[in-house]
Amino acid sequence: MTSLTLQSRAQSAPSRAAAPLLAVDNVGLRFGGIVALDGISFEQHEGQILGLIGPNGAGKTTLFNCLSRLYTPDRGDIRFTGKTILSQPAHKIAGIGISRTFQNLALFQHMNVFDNIRVGFHSTTKSNYLSDALNLGGVRRQDEEIEYVAWTLIDYLGLRADSKRIVTDLPVGTRKRVELARALAANPRLLLLDEPAGGLNHHEVEHLGELIQQIRADRNVTVLLVEHHMSLVMSISDKVVALDFGRKIAEGTPAEVQNDPDVIRAYLGTDRK
C-alpha cells in the first residue's frame, strides 16, 4: 500500500523548464477510412490545466482512449514522466498515475456510490483471491483504510446523502461527481476529464470550474480537460489545444486560441458537411 492518502503526490514544485509530464508526439490513428487522429503533438507540464477543444468528431475522445490505452495509436508515441506508455496494457495506466472520466458516464450501474468509488482504489491497493476469501488481517486493515479515504472523497464531492444509492437512480450531475470521485480515488497525477460539463445545468457548470481548480490546488493534480463549454475551458485553462478532423489546428493561451481564425472557422463550421 503506497499512496492511499489524500495528500497530494509530489509536493515539490516543478519548474516549467523541466520535462513535460505528458508528451503526445505525432500520434495518429485511423478506423478504416476515417482518420480519427492525424499526427497530434503537444506537451503538458505538471500542474497545468490543459483544455482540449474541437467540434464533435474532432478526435478528442479517441485521443483520451489512446492515453488510457484502450486504443493503440498507429503511429507516434505518448510519454508520461518521460517514459512511453504504449508498452503498458490498459489496466496498468491507473497505477502509473493517469485516471479518467468518460464522456458518456461509465459507472458500475448495479453498484452504489460508495462501492463505485471504492473500485477506484483498485490500482493503489493490493490483495488476492485467497487473502480476500479468507479475510486475512492485512486485507481487513486495508479495507478500513479504503473506506476511510472513500468517505473523505464522498464528503469532498458532496456525495454523502447519496452514498448508499445505486448510481443509476441518480441525476447526471451527481453521477458525474461520482465518476470524478472514483477517478480521484486512484490518487492520479494526471486527470483526464472528458466533457465533465456535459448534461449539467448552468449552476452546476459554474460550480464545476471552481471544483476543477480546487482539485488541482488541493491534490496537486494536472488536468487534461475535454470540453465543449467554451467559457468554462477558457476561464480555467492555462493552455488550450484545438483539434479538428483529427488534426491540431491551434495551440496557445485561451485568448490566442479563442481568436485563432482556424478555430473560429472550425466552430462556425463553414466548410463542414
Binding site: L70, I93, A106, L107, H110, V119
Partner: peptide, 17 residues
C-alpha cells in the same frame, strides 16, 4: 468489487486498473 466492476462495465474496470 473488481469482479462486479467487470460485470457492470469492463471498459471502466480496465481504466480502474
Amino acid at each position: 468489487r473488481a469482479m462486479k466492476a467487470i460485470r457492470d462495465n469492463p471498459t471502466a474496470a480496465k481504466a480502474m486498473g
